[in-house]
């Protein structure tokens, strides 16, 4: 039953979800959903650049996303425009430039639908290696910056006084996010990738009492959503990205059905 392409897609998806869960927790804690969208939208520009200079798509997307992260990091400190305006500029600017560039290659056999919504047929052996290799590096980086990043999330001032270099941790996290999004584009697509970051962590929040529990729980919830969504996609012939997000949403709603668990005060 399980064709080879489906196994590859499943393995890639599980690899992505295991990183996207913990990374997504910081998206939720730091209210960075729009920042994630901006990186995702810039991916189309990354695709155009990858086509222009003949790079692997994931590498092109990653490099472009890192440039966007660095631009955002710089602009936030130098410019007086509000953060969401800057994000809007970069997000839609990147998307538009990417689409215009791609229109110069009408002969390119580029599956725009697949880019926007994900395509499980598209996962090659090389992609799988890129996802698992990159994912392992990303998890290692997250482990390394965990304490500074968490402290910076609670209070940048406290983190600075404790000499944890919160700015550095935030920059590393931005690059990590670029890597996760670049790796996930093929399976989930540009438009829905942020859902894979935030829905799993939102799902497990009320069952957890520490940041570390929530990160691990989000990884598990993400793996369930990806596996369920990809199997549904293969059986029902639905696009993979939306199928994964619908599954994640269904899991989220099911966990909301029960009586809300109050935070237990140990006194």
């Amino acid at each position: 039953m399980l064709d080879d392409f489906l196994i590859r897609a499943l393995l890639a998806g599980i690899g992505i979800a295991m990183v996207a869960g913990p990374a997504g927790c910081f998206i939720v804690w730091r209210r960075l959903a729009y920042f994630g969208e901006t990186i995702a939208h810039s991916a189309l520009l990354g695709v155009a650049i990858a086509v222009l200079v003949n790079l692997h798509l994931v590498i092109g997307i990653f490099v472009t996303a890192v440039v966007v992260v660095l631009a955002m990091y710089y602009l936030e400190r130098r410019d007086t425009l509000p953060t969401d305006t800057l994000l809007g500029l970069l997000s839609h600017g990147g998307l538009a430039v990417g689409l215009v560039l791609l229109s110069f290659f009408p002969d390119m056999r580029l599956d725009l639908q697949g880019l926007l919504f994900g395509d499980i047929l598209a996962v090659s052996r090389l992609d799988l290696a890129v996802v698992w290799g990159g994912g392992a590096i990303a998890l290692g980086m997250l482990w390394w910056i965990w304490r500074p990043l968490l402290a910076a999330t609670v209070s940048p001032d406290l983190a600075t006084v404790a000499r944890l270099h919160p700015e550095r941790a935030l920059l590393v996290f931005g690059i990590l996010l670029a890597a996760v999004i670049a790796a996930a584009i093929k399976i989930v697509g540009v438009l829905l990738i942020v859902a894979l970051l935030i829905i799993p962590s939102a799902t497990v929040r009320r069952f957890t009492s520490s940041p570390e529990q929530m990160a691990a729980g989000a990884a598990v919830a993400g793996v369930i959503a990806v596996a369920g969504g990809l199997l549904a996609s293969a059986t029902l012939d639905t696009p993979s990205g939306p199928s994964i997000v619908v599954t994640a949403l269904a899991v989220f709603l099911v966990t909301r059905l029960g009586r809300p668990r109050r935070e237990v005060n140990a006194r």
Partner: peptide
């Protein structure tokens, strides 16, 4: 210190926020 309620933190976990 404004805490985001989506970040689960207990009393003892907050103590090790900036060091072990």
């Amino acid at each position: 210190l404004a805490l985001n309620p989506t970040l689960p933190l207990t009393v003892r976990r907050l103590m090790t926020l900036t060091g072990r």
